[in-house]
Structure formats: structure tokens, C-alpha cells
Design a protein around this nucleic acid. Structure first.
Length: 846
RNA sequence: GCCCGAGUGGUGGAACUGGUAGACGCACUGGACUCAAAAUCCAGCGCCCGCAAGGGCAUGUCGGUUCGAUUCCGACCUCGGGCACCA
């Protein structure tokens, strides 16, 4: 019995594909194009199962579309800037560039072992000067177009390390290395004007039909369009204060006015109030993360000022400074209506402010309705609100807006939650921002002739702060305008910038300009983009913005970069805990239901499956699995069972099952006897042959449909069914068996390409599967002429009838009523009603 | 705190636009082959009652709409993702 030699076969076919350059994408082609892209990886040094899942899915689609006759672009690159390299440089004394490229080399060879149909000639890393040079040109083009500006923004500041921290480097309010309490500090930084596109980014979501609904919804909420009212309070010191509200209807429920700690008025008041200075400092101890600010205890400070109610100058509201009012949203000042906003309520309860319900649900009594610990945010009628009483929320909103507009102190406005993109980072391992600061001329762009601004190789990562600042020569530069001494910008760009246009660069990665318009016009948009759901908002929104900005600056001719998006689930594994904490799966062995430390009697606790992570040690190195079972079995596992958008649980027994199937397919082909030559006409006269042909064509139809819809797991199930049919059809005519085997091999090929090549060769073909067309099905063989319908009595299944597809309802009803089980269930009574849904079901109502 | 998902046998899951719940795989059990094992092949496999025929219960929980609900609606529970400097 022949056993499939995965290792040898995989090496052989990978070399064959390479030799023929089969996966090199053409620059232009008469064929329809299909751009398949998986989110490019961060070069951490080793691939993990999440990568395997992601790239297997993309590869499956790329191979499938190729077979269907598309010109396919399926490239790979590296998201190579970022914190880990900088950390490695600081901890291990290595050069971040050397560290990164060594990781890339290691990961590339691991990816290649998966047998991916990738055009490696287009590979690049975002840390290649050739890439970031073009990015600097884009940045300057955006700057000229007014899409880049400089402004102040808060950062997490570590006062001991004298450095800016990422949110993930702030743990419980302290710096991860120094342990110092982190402060919020203002720095002058670079922004992209993404808010210029708020409305467009929102409305265009409707057109993204091949995006998951949930991602569109997440982006919609992120952009956060709200219609509201901006109006003025007059303060007791005579100043005017602008506030924004989405609930003008609740104006008579107001019990305070609150300012952000960062509001200009707060700063002005602090000049004469040392206690307010302390309060602002207290607020600044919370990090910059929104979750942190929202979860922090509500804090307030009474300024002593009051504000006149806009409809009643005698009604004075206290003016507070509150830590939950964000300067970046609306006007940085609000009026608080505790009864109908949870944050305002928490705040009011803490500071003993009045809580007056002004919206009463329709099923409650206005006289007795009160608000306790939970604000009422639902619909209802206005109460305690003078001229608004009895109105609905919507009518009251309009009424208040109308009156305040008429009084000249209010204006209806549209507000967005979306903030401009803070894109500068105080880090050394990133794309330098091509700007120069001159004492005389201000901020001056680096002239195009002087690009790229390259990162120096000799950075000292032991110093405090940004190593670029400490570099002896990097910052020294002459002002391009006046020629005097000036200082080079040391901020680098957010790595999200690198990943906001890489998909476009792949269309011509060696172009001397950021983008080759001809190549971009041919290949974009990406037809199928695949990646993790964790990128649902930021990366995808930034890329959508960038594409619009590149359109405005004439680098591309479209607005939406990704026509189809798919977000895959995570890879999980059970966790093992021994006496000394977490253990690696390879350290344990299972005996019966229990798990033990390998080679010992120490029992191990088996925990639930969780996302594979280094900290929980529940990781399985893909390369070890590929060594044991071959890439095809691993690829097959990744696509079977779990639907791709859901998490998949890695299990050894599951992979073993896949490995058995690999061998089963090989054996079916290897042991098939008496097959006619390839291309022989198919005959099928007996029933066994006919039903095998039917199974074959149904499988072709189903697998084609499932792969088109990215339902890999369903495609896999159909292939198991076809393999079973081939086993059952061992006595079928040889030509029908050849047809079935060829279909099986071709349909398996996108998922198990190496096995498919070996089988295809064994079936006597000289062309490769990778050069073969996708099989077609005969529609007449897919349908059958009779149908089995379930028969229910009062919704409970009592039997079934098999009738010709063309049977009319009356004859189906007659046959159903004649069933013994139906007669018994009816107990002699006449049916009240009989529902016959043709070709589906019969329901008899007794 | 806010936003977004997901819950179906021992297990991963399938079920087209509301129409036979559990396809297909894994695990398990029994059998064949073998000196033995591996591999392979055959059979069984939601739960409860029953010798059986058959009946009842079942898609996180509780309600609702419907001739009929895993699918639609409402409330709740549990788990997961995102929250702007991780990528």
C-alpha cells in the first residue's frame, strides 16, 4: 500500500511552481483581474497559527480564482516598523534593522513551506528606504493639499524614562519599564485631516456590499455622526460659553454645566485658582485611553461660576469642571441632564445635584416617575419642561432648536465622534517625517530632491526618550528656505500609515514614484481582503481615508481600496496548568481523560480553549506540525470544521484526521484500477455509475459555490462526501470513476495544492493542476426528478412522502393524508387545514 | 463605561429567502483483517421512557409572532473583539 510522502512531494511541487514562475502576476492582461490580499504580517520572527489560517484562506481563494481564469495578484510583504524592534534594540543591544530583516528571512522561509501561491517578486518591507521614501513623498503631497497639519495633543508621558508611552505600555497607570506614574502631557504633533472625509467615509459604507455588516456598523459607530445643537450659555462673569448637545429636549432637566479639564476657559480660570490647577493635574493622571477615562471615577470641581438657563435667566446652573468631558468632542463643554444620561447621573449623585426627569416613558405616570441609579434614555413624552410638556422627544428637540436659533444663540449642527488622526510618534523605528524646523521660517518641508530622509544606522537605544533626538548628526540640517541652521523633525509616522497604502504599492512595488497609475488602475481595488477582526476599525478606516487622500492628490483614481473584506476568527487551544504555572502543549501527554507532564505522573489541569498566546503557553508551532503532517494536512485542518469567521480550536486529533484524509485521497487515486486514458468520453449506463456521476457534479456545483462565498468548511464537507461516493462507487464504470477522481483532485487543489499535483500526475496528466482549469458541472446531473417531503401534523413531523418534482399539491396532500402515522395522529378527525409548500413540506393542521 | 459579535449532541459544526434540526468531520463503542500492533474496512452513536413498535424532550435562558422558529421580535445570561500610541 502506497503511503503519501508529504515532505518530498511538497518540496518537489514548490520547486516546480517556482521554476515555471506560475504565480507571477502580469502587469497587464486581457483576462479579468482578481487581487487577493491578506493583511501583511509584522515580522516577529516566526509564523503562528493565526498566520497559517489567514494565508491559507487567501491562498485558497487565489488558486481558485486562477483556475477559474482570472489574472491573479497575490503578493506578500512586511509591516516592518514598530515597537518590538525598538524593544529588542533596547533589551538585546541589536540593531533594529538587522533584527527585523533576520526575522523577515526566517518568516519568509516558513511561509514558503506552506506552499502559498504568492508572487514573491513583489515582496517589500515597509522599513525598506525604497518604500518609506515614497511614503514621504505622499506625506508631502498630502501636506500641500492641506490634509496634514500640526497641533497639540496629549501623550502618555513617563517622567522617569523621559519618554512617550504607547497605551499598551501603560499598565495600571504606570510605565511598564520604569513603574513611574504616567502623566498626560501636551506635545506639538502631526495630524492627518481624516475628519475632512467624515461624511464620505460614513456614507460610502453603504456601498461596501462585500464587507461584513458588523464591520460596517463598527465603522459607522466609530465615525459617530450625530445631529445636535450648539448653543451659548451666558456665564455669571459675562463670558459666553458654547456647548454641544444631542439632547436639546432635556434642557429643562439640566442641573449643571461642565467643562473639560482641557477647555480654554478651564485654563483661564486656573490662572487665578491654585485648587483648580491641582484638580487639572489630578485629571491628567488618567492615561489617554478612552476606556480608562470612561471607567475612571467621575470627578468634578466647582468653578464658582454659574450659567444662565437659556430660557430663564433667573435659573442659575453651577459651572463645573468634569473629568469625563472630552475636549476633542463637540465644544469640550456640555450641560448635564442627570435623569437622561448615565454619566451625568453618576456625576450628579456624587455631587448632590438635582435629578429632574423630563422625559417620561409612555407607560409611566409623569407625577410619580423618578430616576434612581439608572438614567432613562428611551422614548417618551416631555414633562416638567414648561412649553415642551407633552411633546415627544423628537418634536421637543426641534422646538428647542427652533427657539434658540430664533434667539440667535443656537445653531443646529452635525457633529462627528471621529477625530483627526494623530500620526506622529516619538519613536526611532518608523518612517521619518520629512520636515524641518527653522527658527526663522517655521516648519519647512524637506525638498523632494533631498528625499528620502533616511534613518541613521547608529542609534543609541539606551538613552532616554527618542533615540533620533539623541543622535549626533540626524537633527542637524540647513533650512531649505533661508539656509540657516535648523533642526530636523524627529517624530516618525504611526505604523498605520505604512499599512494604509501598501496594498496599492504592490501593484508596482518598484515604481520610482509612490504609485504607477497604470498599474494601480489595472489592479485596484483589492477584490478580496482577508484579515483579523481586530483591524475592523483603525487599519481599515485609515486605509479608506488614505485612498481618498491619494485620489485627491491624483495618485489613484478610486476611493474605496477593498471591494471585498473578510474577517477571520482566531486560533485557540486548550491551556495546561502544572504546579509551576502554564505548560506548553508539547510538555504534556494525555492518558485517557487526564493529562500528565510528559514521562511523569504529575497531573496537569486542562483549561478551556483560549486564543493562542505566548503568555498562556497554549501555542503550537506551525513548523513542527508541517514537519509531522505536511503543509497540506495543516492547510486542510485550517479550512475544515469551523466557519472561517469564527474561532477554530487547534487539536492534535483533528490534524490526525486531516492527515488520514490526505492519505485517503492519495489511495483512492493510487488504487483505482482500469482507468481509461485522460480525456476519454464518459459513459454511465448502470445505476452505480449514474449516481457516481451525479455525486461528482453535485460536488463540483457545491464546492464552487461554497468557495465563492468563502465557506471553506462547507466546501470541505462536500469533498468528504465526494470521497465517500467514490469509495461507494468502486464498481462504477471506469470513465465515471476517472471523472469523479479528477473532480476530487481539482476541487481539493486550492486547499491541498501539493497533494493535488501528485494525484494529478498519478492520473496521467502532464500539465500541472496549477495550470489546469476549474471543473464545470452539468446542470442536468445536479437535479433529481423526485423529492422527499416531510409531513407534519400540527408542526410535528410524522412521516415523509417521496413524490415526483412535478407533482401537484392535491396529489401530494392525498398521499400525505394516507400515511399511517398521519391517520393515527389525526385520531379520525378531519384536518382543519392542509398546507403544502411545493418541494418542501406538508403541514396538516388538526 | 461605550460600541460590535457569538452561543446547536461527548466535540468542531451543517441547515438555501420561516419549511424533515444534527449533513460532514473528530472522539467514542462494537466487529472484520493481523501472531500482535499500526494502518485500513464495516456497523452504531442527541437526551429521556420503551423488549420493540412507538412516544416525549431538545438549537444559552424566558416570553412573543406563525400552520410551522436554530432562522423573525422583546428581555436576560455567558463568552469574545474594539475603544484612536500593540499590530
Amino acid at each position: 500500500m502506497a503511503r503519501y510522502n508529504a515532505k518530498e512531494s511538497e518540496r518537489h511541487w514548490q520547486a516546480e511552481w517556482d521554476r515555471r514562475a506560475l504565480f507571477a502576476a502580469p502587469d497587464h492582461s486581457d483576462k479579468p483581474k482578481c487581487y487577493v490580499l491578506e493583511m501583511f504580517p509584522y515580522p516577529s520572527g516566526r509564523i503562528h497559527m493565526g498566520h497559517v489560517r489567514n494565508y491559507t484562506m487567501g491562498d485558497c481563494i487565489a488558486r481558485f480564482r486562477r483556475a477559474q481564469g482570472f489574472a491573479v495578484l497575490h503578493p506578500m510583504g512586511w509591516d516592518a516598523f514598530g515597537l518590538p524592534a525598538e524593544n529588542a534594540a533596547r533589551d538585546g543591544g541589536v540593531n533594529p534593522r538587522d533584527w527585523t530583516y533576520a526575522n523577515i528571512d526566517a518568516m519568509r522561509s516558513e511561509l514558503k513551506a506552506l506552499g502559498l501561491a504568492i508572487d514573491w517578486s513583489r515582496e517589500f518591507a515597509t522599513c525598506d528606504p525604497a518604500y518609506y521614501a515614497q511614503q514621504q513623498k505622499l506625506f508631502l503631497a498630502f501636506y500641500k493639499a492641506g490634509l496634514v497639519y500640526r497641533s497639540e495633543a496629549d501623550v502618555n508621558w513617563d517622567p522617569v524614562d523621559m519618554t512617550v508611552l504607547a497605551n499598551e505600555q501603560v499598565i495600571d497607570g504606570r510605565g511598564w519599564r520604569s513603574g513611574a506614574v504616567v502623566e498626560r502631557r501636551k506635545l506639538s504633533q502631526w495630524f492627518f485631516r481624516i475628519t475632512a472625509y467624515s461624511e464620505e467615509l460614513l456614507s460610502a459604507l453603504d456601498g461596501l456590499e462585500r464587507w461584513p455588516e458588523k464591520v460596517r456598523l463598527m465603522q459607522k459607530n466609530w465615525i459617530g455622526r450625530s445631529e445636535g445643537l450648539r448653543f451659548q450659555f451666558t456665564l455669571s462673569d459675562g463670558q459666553k460659553l458654547d456647548v454641544f448637545t444631542t439632547r436639546p429636549d432635556t434642557l429643562f432637566g439640566a442641573s449643571f454645566v461642565a467643562l473639560s479639564p482641557d477647555h480654554p476657559l478651564t485654563e483661564q480660570l486656573a490662572k487665578t485658582n491654585p485648587k483648580l490647577v491641582d484638580f487639572i493635574a489630578e485629571c491628567r493622571k488618567t492615561g489617554t485611553a478612552e476606556a480608562e477615562i470612561e471607567k475612571a471615577e467621575k470627578l468634578g470641581f466647582d468653578t464658582g461660576l454659574t450659567a444662565d438657563h437659556p430660557f430663564d435667566p433667573d435659573w442659575k446652573l453651577p459651572v463645573m469642571v468634569a473629568n469625563f468631558v472630552l475636549m476633542g468632542y463637540g465644544t469640550g463643554a456640555i450641560f448635564g441632564c442627570p435623569a437622561h444620561d448615565q454619566r451625568d447621573l453618576d456625576f450628579a449623585r456624587k455631587y448632590g445635584l438635582t435629578v429632574t426627569p423630563v422625559v417620561v416613558p409612555d407607560d409611566a405616570d409623569a407625577k410619580t416617575f423618578t430616576v434612581g441609579k439608572e438614567a432613562y434614555t428611551g422614548p417618551g413624552k416631555l414633562a416638567n419642561s414648561r412649553f415642551l410638556d407633552g411633546m415627544t422627544v423628537e418634536v421637543a428637540k426641534a422646538e428647542v432648536a427652533k427657539r434658540l436659533e430664533a434667539a440667535g444663540i443656537g445653531q443646529r449642527t452635525v457633529n462627528y465622534r471621529l477625530r483627526d488622526w494623530l500620526a506622529s510618534r516619538q519613536r526611532a523605528w518608523g518612517c521619518p517625517i520629512p520636515m524641518i524646523h527653522c527658527a526663522k521660517c517655521g516648519v519647512v518641508p524637506v525638498p523632494e530632491a533631498d528625499l528620502p530622509v533616511k534613518l541613521p544606522d547608529d542609534l543609541n537605544f539606551q538613552a532616554h526618550g527618542n533615540p533620533l533626538d539623541a543622535h549626533p548628526t540626524f537633527t542637524r540640517v540647513k533650512c531649505p528656505t533661508c539656509g540657516g541652521d535648523a533642526k530636523r523633525e524627529t517624530d516618525t509616522l504611526d505604523t498605520f500609515v505604512d499599512s494604509s497604502w501598501y496594498f496599492a504599492r504592490f501593484t508596482d512595488p518598484k515604481a520610482q514614484e509612490p504609485l504607477n497609475r497604470k498599474a494601480v488602475d489595472y489592479w485596484l481595488p483589492v477584490d478580496q481582503y482577508i484579515g483579523g477582526i481586530e483591524h475592523a476599525i483603525l487599519h481599515l478606516l485609515y486605509s479608506r481615508f488614505f485612498t481618498r487622500a491619494m485620489h485627491e492628490t491624483n495618485f489613484v483614481g478610486l476611493d474605496e481600496p477593498f471591494a471585498g473584506l473578510f474577517t477571520q476568527g482566531m486560533v485557540t487551544h486548550e491551556t495546561y496548568t502544572g504546579p509551576d504555572g502554564y505548560l506548553l502543549p508539547e510538555q504534556i501527554e494525555k492518558r485517557g481523560d487526564k493529562a500528565f507532564l510528559t514521562g511523569t505522573d504529575t497531573e496537569i489541569t486542562v483549561g478551556p480553549s483560549e486564543k493562542m498566546s505566548k503568555s498562556k503557553k497554549n501555542v503550537v508551532p506551525p513548523m513542527r506540525m508541517i514537519e509531522s503532517y505536511g503543509a497540506d494536512a495543516i492547510r486542510w485542518f485550517m479550512l475544515s470544521d469551523s466557519p472561517p469567521e469564527r474561532d477554530v480550536d487547534w487539536s492534535e486529533s483533528g490534524v490526525e484526521g486531516c492527515w488520514r484524509f490526505v492519505n485517503r485521497v492519495y489511495r483512492l487515486v493510487d488504487e483505482a484500477e482500469g482507468l481509461p486514458a485522460p480525456g476519454t468520453a464518459i459513459t454511465a449506463t448502470d445505476d452505480v455509475s449514474k449516481s457516481l456521476r451525479q455525486a461528482t457534479h453535485r460536488a463540483i456545483a457545491a464546492v464552487t459555490d461554497h468557495l465563492s462565498g468563502l465557506r471553506f468548511n462547507s466546501a470541505v464537507a462536500q469533498l468528504y462526501t465526494l470521497a465517500n461516493a467514490i469509495s461507494d462507487g468502486a464498481k462504477a464504470e471506469a470513465s465515471a470513476r476517472r471523472e469523479a477522481l479528477e473532480a476530487l483532485v481539482l476541487l481539493c487543489a486550492p486547499m491541498m495544492p501539493h497533494l493535488a499535483e501528485s494525484c494529478w500526475q498519478a492520473l496521467g496528466h502532464s500539465k500541472l493542476v496549477a495550470q489546469s482549469e476549474w471543473p464545470r458541472f452539468d446542470p442536468t446531473l445536479v437535479v433529481s426528478d423526485s423529492v422527499t417531503m416531510a409531513v407534519q401534523v400540527n408542526g410535528k413531523r410524522r412521516g415523509e412522502v417521496t413524490v415526483p418534482k412535478t407533482a401537484d399539491n392535491a396529489s401530494v396532500e392525498k398521499e400525505a393524508l394516507a400515511l399511517e402515522a398521519v391517520v393515527r395522529a389525526l385520531e379520525g378527525k378531519a384536518p382543519k387545514k392542509v398546507i403544502v409548500v411545493p418541494q418542501r413540506i406538508v403541514n396538516i393542521v388538526a
